[in-house]
Simulated scan of single mutants.
Amino acid sequence: MRLPTTTSHANAASWSVIGGLALACLLLSHALGFSVALARAALPALGVAVLTGALAIGRMRADTRLVAGATAFLQMTLFTILGVVLAYLLAAFGGPSWDEWLAVADARLGLDWPAILAVADRLPAPLLLVAGLAYHSLVVQMVGCIVVLAATARLERLRTAVAAAIVAGAVTILLSGLLPAVGNLFDPAHYRTLWPSVAWQDRDLVLGLRDGAVRELDLSHMTGIVSFPSYHAALPVILFWGLYPVTRLRVPAAIWAGLTIVATPLFGGHYGVDVLAGLLLAVLALAVARRLAAKAPDLSGMRWPVRHARPMPRTTGRIRWKQGAEVIH
Rank of each mutant, 00 (worst) to 15 (best):
T223I: 04
S220T: 04
G278E: 03
G224M: 02
A296S: 14
P252I: 15
R303T: 13
I319G: 00
G269A: 09
A254E: 05
G268Q: 05
I261C: 02
T316H: 06
L239Q: 05
A282Y: 11
L266P: 05
V275S: 01
P252W: 07
T223A: 04
G278T: 11
F240I: 07
A294V: 12
W321K: 00
G269H: 02
W304P: 02
E216V: 15
A233P: 06
T223Q: 13
G301F: 07
T260I: 00
P236H: 09
A285H: 13
W321D: 05
R248E: 03
A213N: 07
V251R: 08
S230Q: 02
A285K: 12
L249N: 02
I319L: 14
P313E: 08
L279A: 09
M222K: 09
L281C: 11
D298I: 04
K295Q: 13
L299A: 08
M312D: 05
G224V: 03
D218G: 02
P311C: 04
A234D: 06
Q323T: 09
H232Y: 12
G268R: 03
G301W: 11
L217I: 15
D211K: 12
K322C: 08
L239D: 01
H270C: 00
R307V: 15
A296L: 13
A257W: 03
